[in-house]
Design a protein around this nucleic acid. Structure first.
Lengths: 215, 215
DNA sequence: CAAAATTAATCAAACGATTGATTAAGCGTA
DNA sequence: TACGCTTAATCAATCGTTTGATTAATTTTG
């Protein structure tokens, strides 16, 4: 049936996304992916033409969900810059930290930079989110809510970099935190709220003028 | 002569470091490395036992110098926790941001969790440095210089994560910063002091009690 | 010192294993 | 039967590694 076909392709894409994230593009062999997905090796080429086609399919499937993540927050006139940033942090932590394997995949391919066409596409997508956050922060500076000499580009590097460090190097952050961050319960009940609280307090301490230090 | 022998091994390590960084561990074949270095393929195994041995040799050569530097700072009794951290940031930025291709390599390999033996060794070596920084921060908390409720593990994620973001995704951070960070002059004269200033101000604002906010 | 013995360094060639990809035959359903 | 799906078998290419032979350097010996 048509429905089974779609479900099977989706299943392959799910598995491929995870395997690519774990092993990288080179490290993820077509045999490993097909084996993990429980399908014959030739099915990958049958459905997606080639390994690169499969990779592109994995990537493009995710594009839409990343497009609109922050835009509605940014354009909300009822919030000041800090409240928007607060909301951005909430959404980002909630959404990215939980489903992290695609982020790992993206970061690795961007840092590799040897597959030009694909890398350019990925960067273009990522920049949409980055510019959205940057715009919010600059709004805060212009409104006098944030320090005028705040280094916004580097704050962005901190916001996304801290998140990347946690999700991209789970073994290291697990050791530093004292818990396995791949544990679903710890992630949901402890790490997520903890990262939210930390990130807000950190950025507030650096960005916001005369904020309440006590809490 | 003895000197030539050493120089040759060092030359192979130099080339291997660059090729590994450009192509990744999987992407860098022993043939490419030996070809680029102008030596016979078998020399890699003769000198370093295996491809993995070569990689580890490249890795340990880089990490050792920084490790002793950190330990010297950490054990210096004449500085308080913040001054130590200040010095760590200076050294870290000066050292890592400039020579970044190796850091990209390390982060890429660690973020793949399925190459067990090699990844474990890398993590083990990296953690020495991470724990050193952690120890300094905890010292600051215990001495009452830093806020008692400071989330030290996440501060570490910020410190290393911000750096990683800048050096691992130069295309993105170049766009955010408005300059090509791969430009040597900009990197040395502007980015380095800027990151130092930012990192200290950020961590100070979050960590240190009753610091001077004005500057 | 010089010849012999030993060790270290280097090379081309080939190894078995694995890679991404393709093939032709078999399968189930319409 | 005819068609879309699935499979095992197989392809050439490349992988990291090993081999045996050869040369260069060093040490031992007479």
């Amino acid at each position: 049936m048509e429905k089974d076909k779609i479900d099977k392709k989706e299943h392959i894409l799910d598995v491929a996304e995870k395997v690519f994230a774990d092993l990288g593009y080179d490290g993820a062999s077509t045999r490993t992916i097909s084996g993990e997905a429980g399908v014959n090796m030739a099915m990958l080429n049958y459905y997606f033409g080639s390994k690169e086609g499969l990779f592109l399919a994995v990537f493009e499937r995710k594009i839409n969900s990343f497009r609109t993540l922050l835009q509605n927050i940014s354009s909300d006139g009822s919030m000041n810059a800090w409240d928007k940033l607060d909301k951005c942090i909430d959404n980002y932590v909630e959404r990215i930290i939980a489903n992290n394997c695609f982020q790992k995949l993206i970061n690795r391919e961007v840092s590799m930079n040897k597959r030009g066409d694909l890398t350019d596409k990925i960067i273009e997508i990522l920049m949409v989110n980055v510019y959205e956050v940057k715009r919010i922060m600059e709004e805060g500076v212009n409104n006098g809510l944030f320090h005028a000499d705040a280094d916004i580009p580097l704050v962005i590097a901190t916001l996304f970099g801290t998140k990347n460090y946690i999700v991209n190097m789970p073994q290291i952050s697990s050791l530093v935190l004292g818990h396995d961050i791949r544990d679903e319960k710890f992630m949901e009940n402890e790490l997520k709220p903890r990262v939210k609280t930390y990130m807000k307090r950190l950025l507030k301490a650096y960005l916001v003028k005369e904020h309440d230090n006590s809490k």
